[in-house]
Design a protein around this nucleic acid. Structure first.
Length: 260
DNA sequence: ATGGCAAATTGAATTTGA
């Protein structure tokens, strides 16, 4: 199965780009985040006509939103309300016996202090709940993908020193994400493939004059697999070129090939 | 420790992202 994760930053605005990448990357499954579209307006017909008719989504107006687009049948789908909120930050689907979890973890606002910034508290609570959830029911035949909004390793950011107090790379977030991987029973498939030293990014800010020249990226998007899937990883690809598309998302697709 | 931007919504300014 060839599966990708991509924060699309509006699926309606970038519908053509999604179709282009589905075809160009020859994907079986695409997990989207930040679709920013209510379910009734999701462009299901366009994807179905192109050969990806199996779609589950949870969207809302303006914010958040997740979807799983597949050319293989989806035999089950579910979601969980993390931190008790009905926001659209998680959906799961079963495809060819694999349970695929698609997450959009809260960004966390600007100030890395939950006392003055409730959004940061929400983010920490969200990750903490994910840890409890997966610790209690260790994943098997599972894949977890998404925009987790945390770059855990030094080689996941352009400057670990300069981002030390910037939300997404603070010590507490880095520790909590590594704890979630460890206690939740996951393997970071991208690091398993590339090692811990290689500099890897999945997001480049819109604010740079030239994203490629400044290259101040962060690895905020992730693909993890359950331990029993570890030896089934046959390839990992970060589709950096997509950041240079016309009207791009600020995130790029991450792709995994998983042997059946 | 940013910020030179972008998207969606409501009606040119605000919120959110990271």
């Amino acid at each position: 199965m060839k599966l990708a994760s991509w924060n699309i930053n509006s699926v309606r605005l970038r519908q053509a780009l999604v179709l282009d990448r589905l075809q160009g990357l020859d994907l079986d499954v695409l997990c989207l985040q930040e679709t920013k579209t209510e379910d009734q307006f999701f462009p299901v017909e366009a994807f179905a006509e192109a050969g990806w008719p199996h779609i589950v989504m949870r969207g809302e107006k303006s914010y958040n939103g997740v979807a799983i687009i597949s050319r293989l049948p989806i035999t089950d789908s579910a979601h969980h309300l993390w931190t008790g909120r009905a926001d659209c930050r998680h959906i799961s689907a079963t495809i060819e016996g694999q349970t695929i979890h698609n997450f959009y973890v809260p960004a966390g606002g600007d100030e890395p202090d939950r006392e003055v910034n409730p959004k940061f508290g929400h983010k920490l609570d969200f990750v903490d709940e994910m840890t409890s959830y997966f610790s209690a029911q260790p994943p098997a035949s599972s894949v977890l993908v998404g925009d987790l909004n945390i770059a855990p390793l030094a080689a996941d950011v352009w400057s670990t020193r300069q981002l030390k107090n910037v939300v997404s790379h603070t010590d507490i977030e880095r520790e909590m994400l590594l704890k979630l991987i460890d206690e939740g029973g996951w393997v970071d498939a991208v690091r398993h493939h590339y090692g811990e030293e290689e500099i890897l990014y999945s997001w480049w800010s819109y604010r740079a004059r030239d994203w490629q020249a400044s290259n101040r990226g962060r690895r905020l998007d992730h693909i993890w697999v359950s331990a029993d899937n570890q030896d089934k990883i046959t390839n990992i690809h970060i589709d950096t070129a997509t950041r240079g598309a016309e009207k791009p998302s600020d995130h790029v697709p991450l792709v995994i090939d998983l042997a059946s």
